[in-house]
């Protein structure tokens, strides 16, 4: 009769309690530093934000009173990630279209899918080393060495696997009936893809691509010896072929400076970088959740 009731002292119940509290402790240890980290970045960085930050050039380290702003780095990050997107999105979407729409699961497509996964795991600094060897040291781009263009190319290598993967998976989710219907009324393959399958997979592809861009925007390692860094305003198209600053490299350089003013600038730059990356992430997550809901109906 007693055995029908919950008995605290039973060894299995004591063991259960023990492991439950262990997992709670694990979760606490895991989550607390993360909360601490985010709030610290937001508070410490947010307190450094001033209007001049967005308009001034950073001053060279040494002047402890006034570090200037981060305008060139901000614009540089925008330009470098744009270059990376211009390269990676067409190549990635095109490659994804081949994998999802044309390939029939043969050796070639299996090899490419495997290659995409391997490329996604290549350390980001190796992408920088590769572009350094291929472009910076050979001065192949009109004689320029370190340049924003080279930096953008290095980042595009990191974006490419994400774009291909999301296109491939997004297109695979499109129901085959749509394709049959389109082909059945006499549309050719490319019309079907461009007018039917791509548009209906657009949202999931766009979400993945935007997340990939956000990740690339925060990458530092591929830029430190391809785009290098610059203290000066970006004034024209020609600046693409010279050293270009970026928020990520600014944070790296200025965090290691012994001067307080530069360190503060690094915090301000991290605030802007983290805030924009997190808001892009949250926004696309909401969008994805919304899409899922409408699909279910």
């Amino acid at each position: 009769m007693n055995s029908l009731y919950y008995q605290k002292r039973l060894s299995r119940n004591i063991g259960d309690k023990f492991f439950t509290s262990l997992s709670v402790i694990c979760a606490l240890i895991a989550i607390l530093p993360l909360i601490f980290l985010v709030t610290y970045i937001l508070i410490k960085g947010g307190s450094q934000i001033t209007p001049e930050l967005f308009t001034l050039e950073p001053n060279p380290p040494g002047d402890d009173l006034d570090a200037g702003g981060i305008n060139p780095a901000l614009i540089g990050t925008l330009i470098i990630t744009t270059i990376a997107s211009i390269i990676a999105i067409p190549v990635g979407v095109g490659g994804g279209i081949y994998l999802a729409e044309y390939s029939k699961g043969g050796a070639f497509s299996r090899f490419i899918r495997f290659g995409v996964n391997v490329l996604a795991g290549v350390p980001s600094i190796i992408a920088g080393v590769f572009i350094y060897a291929l472009i910076v040291s050979t001065k192949i781009l009109f004689g320029s060495m370190y340049s924003g263009l080279a930096g953008g190319m290095a980042l595009s290598i990191l974006m490419l696997p994400t774009v291909i993967k999301t296109t491939d998976e997004g297109l695979k989710l499109v129901p085959n009936e749509l394709r049959y219907a389109s082909l059945g009324v006499g549309a050719s393959m490319y019309t079907t893809i461009l007018k039917v399958t791509l548009p209906s997979a657009f949202r999931s592809i766009a979400t993945g691509v935007v997340l990939g861009i956000a990740r690339a925007a925060g990458e530092t390692a591929p830029l430190i010896f391809t785009a290098l860094f610059s203290y000066y305003y970006i004034t024209g198209f020609g600046d693409l072929f010279y050293e270009m600053g970026s928020l990520a490299v600014l944070i790296y350089n200025f965090a290691l400076e012994p001067y307080d003013a530069q360190n503060k600038l690094a915090w301000a730059a991290s605030f802007i970088l983290v805030l924009s990356i997190l808001s892009v992430n949250i926004f696309s997550r909401i969008l994805a959740a919304f899409t899922e809901k409408t699909k279910r109906v």
């Binding site: 989550i31 980290l37 925060g218 990520a248 965090a255 990356i277």
Partner: peptide
């Protein structure tokens, strides 16, 4: 929340660590 944290750039983690 945990998934969002994977998006924080590592250079910012380095700054925080220092």
């Amino acid at each position: 929340f945990v998934e969002l944290l994977a998006a924080i750039p590592s250079v910012v983690l380095g700054l925080w660590a220092i």
